[in-house]
Write a protein that binds this DNA or RNA. Sequence first.
DNA 1: CGCCTGGTTGAGAATCATCAACATCTGTGG
DNA 2: CCACAGATGTTGATGATTCTCAACCAGGCG
Lengths: 232, 232
Amino acid sequence: MEYRASCTICRLASICLPIALEASEVNRLDSIIERSKPLHKGEYAFREGQPFTSVFALRSGALKAFAITGDGKEQVTGFYFPGELFGVDGIAQNRHVISVKALETSAVCEIPFAQLESLSATLPSLQRHVFRLMSREITQDQQLITLLSRNSAERRVAALLINLSQRNAKLQRSATAFRLPMSRTDIGNYLGLTVETVSRIFSRFQKSRLLAVEKKEIRLLDVPALEALASD
Amino acid sequence: MEYRASCTICRLASICLPIALEASEVNRLDSIIERSKPLHKGEYAFREGQPFTSVFALRSGALKAFAITGDGKEQVTGFYFPGELFGVDGIAQNRHVISVKALETSAVCEIPFAQLESLSATLPSLQRHVFRLMSREITQDQQLITLLSRNSAERRVAALLINLSQRNAKLQRSATAFRLPMSRTDIGNYLGLTVETVSRIFSRFQKSRLLAVEKKEIRLLDVPALEALASD
DNA sequence: CGCCTGGTTGAGAATCATCAACATCTGTGG
DNA sequence: CCACAGATGTTGATGATTCTCAACCAGGCG
């Protein structure tokens, strides 16, 4: 069955945890990774409050991360695509502070953290890589903070589209035509906007020929203009 | 001179890196830490773009972290208080992606990262602690994201005050009366608000007896009400 | 003393949220 | 395979919150 795949043959190996590891080291990493059956849409990788035991890597599909706020509402804190690591939020307090659920059918690799820790201690490049992945998460969060802080709705949406485009490119997929795996509601929630505003901006961008929207399928028609909007 | 102090006698040892280390281990950590002369107000611990070589711990004073946005403006991403670790933003790309400068005279401990890495490999509890500190940074960033996402100006300010109060408490300082080391402009920038709005909210909170403001000195008069405002 | 930075307050303008109606899509069971 | 219900998305009208512009005040420093 497909989900028994090993890191050695995973086509994401070059952007996932095994990066910078020797073949023999990959095998050692591989041996501690658990691959369970795929997550269907709406199923959870883990939930907020749950004890932290593992970090995860996404092999296929798409996920969203979210927390429940004081007043019981959902707050989307991020989306994950193949090759990306998640679950490190739980290290600090030994339990997860966010929930992660599947936006579509997704395959995840589970990496028991205790074993990753001991393995890291003997594989300096792995240790460094784990540090690096966590640091990247910090960088991304800070970029989102910057985005949410006092930027117009248009800029927020443009920035998200450019970001998704870049992540698609990294996966050797089209940087200009892709499917948004998340709902408009999730996008709005993530960007600190209402659904209505997101919808209006999509319409506006479409009218001004920046992109073509057909339900969840997106085509970026004027990437430079979107980049300008996103970062000016 | 005071800045030659060692971890062993540092009163912050219990909340800083040495936490959970044996005495002999603390000595090994201590031996790699460099303590340079204090940073004066406005001086930098490091600047955005600078090669990443070390992480830092703040011993005294207060710092602010910020990035420069595409259009050349400052974006404040956080404040640091004694016992807190910073600089881990640089790990991912081997150079710093934010700048950190002193809001007042501050003493920092510099920890060369290469040495911290090798030491971590032989001290499991240190490795775990570094992971933990990075994870905490992620958690904090995500809380800020949640705060910035669609929350009223009042809630943002209340949440910051509560957060500062808690961090003060952790330092054995008063949780209800403290000095804001940062300017109103910095607060606004951090919270995604204009200076004027911050100022108005302080006035409003003062009028409704939630707090007493005298320039930078703050007294929280009704912590429960502020907490309710912050997290409802 | 006067300048400059940082902070406060006011009035008007703009952006985005809210409320509401309607359209479309999904998937479930008949 | 179709019909329908609930979820998801779009569009419009209105209003609130916060930004912008502007004046003014206080304190620190040459």
